[in-house]
C-alpha cells in the first residue's frame, strides 16, 4: 500500500508540472501582451516594464524562474494590473474566505448525499426512495448560478431572513446561502451515485452470505455493504471537488464574499494573466492533492487495490 501511494505521488508531481507549463505557454501564445493598450506606450517605457517583469529574458528562462518561484518560495510573481500588489497578496486575501465556505459545502454535500443515498437504497421502492429519486433528479439541474439568485429572491427579498451578500468575518448568516447554493446539485449527484451503488452492493452475493449467517440487518449494511458501496462514491469525489472549486467563482462574484473568485473574474476581464495563472495553478495543485487523498481513501476501502 505504501508503494501504491508512492506511485500515486509519482503521477501527481508531473501532473502539476504539466499544468504549470501548459498555463505558462498558453499565456505566451496569447495575442497581445499584458501591456498592450489602446494608447501605445513609448518603446523605452515598455522595455523598462518588460525588464521589471522579466519579459525580456528568453522564454525558457522566464518559464524556469516562474516554476522555481512557485516551487521554492510559493511565489506566483507580481500582478500585471495592480502595480503595488503581487499575486500572493491577492491569494492570501481571498483564499481563506473561499476555503472556509468551500470546505463546509463539500463536507455537507458529501455527508448529505451519502446519507440520503444509503437510506433511499435501504428503503428501496418505498415512498422515501421515490421522493429522494425525484428530488435529486430535479436538483441536478439546479447549478450554483441558478440556486444563488433563487435563494436571494426567497430569503433576502421575500422573507428578509438572510443578508443577500457580504462576508462579515464568516458569521453563520452570511454562510448559509453560499453553502446551499454551492452544494445543492452535488448533494443530488452524490445521492444518486450512492443510491445506485448501494443497491448494487445489496444485491451482491456476499451480502446474501452475510444474511445467511443470520447477522442483524444493521450489521449487514454497516459492516458488509458500506465500504464496497462507497467505492464509486469516493472516486466521484475527485470530480466533485473540481466542480465545487469552479463553482466557488460564481459564489464569490454573486454573494460578494470577498473570496478569490472575484479577483479571478476581475483579472480575466483585465487580462491580468499573472493572477489568472496563479489562481489556476493554486486550484490545480489543490485538485491534485485532493485526488491523492481520494486514492488513499480508495486503498483503505478496497484491500484488493493494486496498480
Amino acid at each position: 500500500m505504501t508503494a501504491y501511494i508512492m506511485r500515486r505521488i509519482l503521477v501527481a508531481v508531473p501532473t502539476l508540472v504539466i499544468l504549470i507549463v501548459l498555463c505558462f505557454f498558453l499565456m505566451q501564445v496569447a495575442p497581445g501582451g499584458p501591456f498592450t493598450s489602446e494608447r501605445p506606450l513609448p518603446p523605452q517605457v515598455l522595455a523598462n516594464i518588460e525588464a521589471r517583469y522579466g519579459l525580456d529574458q528568453p522564454l525558457w528562462k522566464q518559464m524556469w524562474d516562474y516554476l522555481a518561484g512557485i516551487v521554492t518560495r510559493f511565489d506566483f510573481g507580481p500582478s500585471f494590473a495592480y502595480r503595488d500588489r503581487d499575486v500572493n497578496d491577492i491569494i492570501a486575501q481571498g483564499f481563506p474566505v473561499t476555503l472556509t465556505y468551500g470546505l463546509i459545502s463539500f463536507v455537507i454535500a458529501t455527508l448529505a448525499g451519502m446519507g440520503v443515498g444509503v437510506v433511499a437504497a435501504i428503503r428501496h421502492n418505498t415512498w422515501l426512495d421515490y421522493i429522494a429519486v425525484g428530488a435529486t433528479f430535479s436538483a441536478q439541474a439546479l447549478p450554483n448560478f441558478v440556486m444563488a439568485p433563487i435563494l436571494v429572491i426567497v430569503f433576502t427579498w421575500q422573507l428578509g431572513w438572510l443578508p443577500g451578500g457580504g462576508w462579515n468575518g464568516g458569521q453563520w448568516q452570511y454562510l448559509v446561502m453560499p453553502v446551499i447554493a454551492l452544494s445543492t446539485s452535488y448533494v443530488a449527484s452524490i445521492t444518486r451515485i450512492t443510491r445506485s451503488s448501494m443497491l448494487e452492493t445489496l444485491n451482491s452475493s456476499f451480502i446474501r452470505t452475510a444474511r445467511a449467517k443470520g447477522l442483524p440487518e444493521h450489521k449487514v449494511i454497516w459492516r458488509h455493504a458500506m465500504k464496497p458501496a462507497m467505492l464509486p462514491v469516493v472516486s466521484y469525489l475527485g470530480p466533485t471537488f473540481v466542480a465545487m472549486i469552479t463553482g466557488s467563482v460564481v459564489i464569490d462574484v454573486y454573494f460578494s464574499t470577498g473570496g478569490i473568485g472575484r479577483a479571478y473574474v476581475d483579472s480575466a476581464l483585465n487580462r491580468d494573466y499573472a493572477v489568472m495563472l496563479g489562481v489556476t495553478i493554486l486550484y490545480g495543485g489543490l485538485t491534485v492533492l485532493f485526488n491523492l487523498l481520494v486514492d488513499v481513501a480508495y486503498a483503505w476501502l478496497d484491500p484488493k487495490i493494486r496498480y
Binding site: 501532473t15 499544468l19 501548459l22 498555463c23 498558453l26 499565456m27 501564445v29 496569447a30 495575442p31 475527485g238 473540481v242 472549486i245 469552479t246 467563482v249 479571478y264 480575466a268 476581464l269 487580462r271 489568472m276 489562481v279 489556476t280 486550484y283 490545480g284 485538485t287 491534485v288 485526488n291
Partner: peptide
C-alpha cells in the same frame, strides 16, 4: 485532474 473551467476561461480571455 486539471480544473478545466479555468482553462476555458483562460482561452476565452486570450
Amino acid at each position: 485532474s486539471i480544473p478545466y473551467m479555468f482553462i476555458i476561461i483562460l482561452l476565452m480571455v486570450m
